[in-house]
Amino acid sequence: MVSRLRSAGCVFAEDEARLLLAEGAGPEELSRNVRQRVEGVPLEHILGWAGFAGGRIVVGPGVFVPRRRTELLVSEGLALLAEALALPPDIAPPAHPVVVDLCCGSGAVGTAILRRAPQVELHAADIDPAAVVCARRNLEPLGGHVHAGDLFAALPPALLGRVRVLAVNAPYVPTQAIRLMPAEARLHEPFASLDGGPDGLDFHRRVAAGCVRWLAPGGHLLIETSTRQAAGTSRILEAAGFTTRTVRSDELDGTVVVGRLPARGAGAV
């Protein structure tokens, strides 16, 4: 099995073989799973789950597989929530800070945050029906709320002006670069979950333009991006009224632009 997986280009063939053996219900299922993996089906789609931020996330065929680099969104979001819950004594912290996982896919970011901060009010949204099904399986048992729709149109109006942390892993691959991606992504994940437009920043523009009225005063917008695109993402957020900083993790190979609205007047747009 290891030889077949390695010959098919699986870099971590030994680890994958162990997982396939552990998850297979019998010889026939194992044989089918190995064949699918050799044919290029993502391991996570075969297993039905992906490892992310120390836990498992349910994923299914045709759903974007959460990447390890996206764990940086989780750690930055949790750090901001910790600050919000540790305000000075003369400022009452929010009892249940509102967090939104936008373009949530399987809901991996929201799930990881909710597992570590169960006191938050967590909402997630995605336009893809298969992703919404997975997100509900991951988030609803933890008390999260999952909505179907296009960006902010999916969110309930009751969240206007209340979102403390808005975490966004929107598509940011430039359209022409998708053909250079590994076949696992190109052939088995939705094109819409990858395509960020000509420069990869189309969704970042839409999010920046639409998010201000949803954020609480002093609220934060966190957007995953690439090192090459970080300056462009920052300029987009700054033009929308945010102060920004860029966070980079070499260990995770992740890049996140963090935008903060002024403490006053943020919800008035």
Score class of each variant (00 low, 15 high):
G254T: 08
P89L: 14
Q36P: 00
G110I: 09
H204Q: 13
V100W: 10
A17H: 08
W49M: 01
A192F: 02
V269F: 12
L80A: 07
E121L: 12
A170P: 12
E16D: 14
P94C: 00
V109M: 06
L87A: 15
G210K: 07
V257N: 10
T111A: 15
D150L: 07
D202K: 11
G254V: 04
R56I: 08
A92P: 01
T225A: 13
D195R: 06
R18T: 13
A263N: 11
A95N: 00
D128E: 07
L21N: 06
V100F: 07
T111R: 10
L19N: 01
P156A: 08
I46W: 02
I236L: 12
E189K: 13
D253F: 02
P118R: 02
G254Y: 06
R116Q: 15
L43D: 09
V165D: 08
T246W: 08
G196S: 06
T111I: 06
G265C: 14
V41E: 12
R206G: 04
S3V: 11
S249V: 02
G219Y: 01
A177R: 14
E28I: 13
A125W: 11
E23N: 05
V133E: 14
A8I: 01
T255E: 09
I57M: 01
C10D: 01
G55M: 05
G77V: 08
V146Y: 14
N138W: 05
G48T: 04
D250V: 14
L215R: 13
V41K: 15
L155M: 08
F12H: 15
I113S: 12
L43V: 10
G110D: 11
E76I: 06
V34F: 06
C10K: 13
P198V: 07
V247P: 05
A185H: 03
L151F: 07
V98P: 03
L85W: 14
G143I: 11
R37F: 06
I57D: 00
V207C: 12
P190Y: 03
T225E: 04
G143H: 11
R56F: 05
E83N: 03
L222D: 03
I127R: 15
A53W: 15
G105N: 11
I113G: 00
R164Q: 14
T175C: 01
A135Y: 06
V11P: 00
E251M: 11
L221E: 08
L215I: 09
G218Y: 04
P118E: 12
S7L: 07
A154E: 07
A86W: 10
P190V: 03
A148F: 02
Q229M: 09
R69I: 00
T244W: 10
H188C: 05
A158N: 01
P182M: 10
I127E: 12
P89N: 04
G26E: 05
V207A: 09
A208E: 03
A13Q: 04
G219H: 09
A216M: 03
L72K: 10
F191L: 14
L20F: 11
A158Q: 14
A268D: 09
G265K: 09
P27R: 14
P94F: 06
M1C: 11
R245D: 11
V269D: 05
V65S: 08
D253R: 15
L85T: 12
P157W: 11
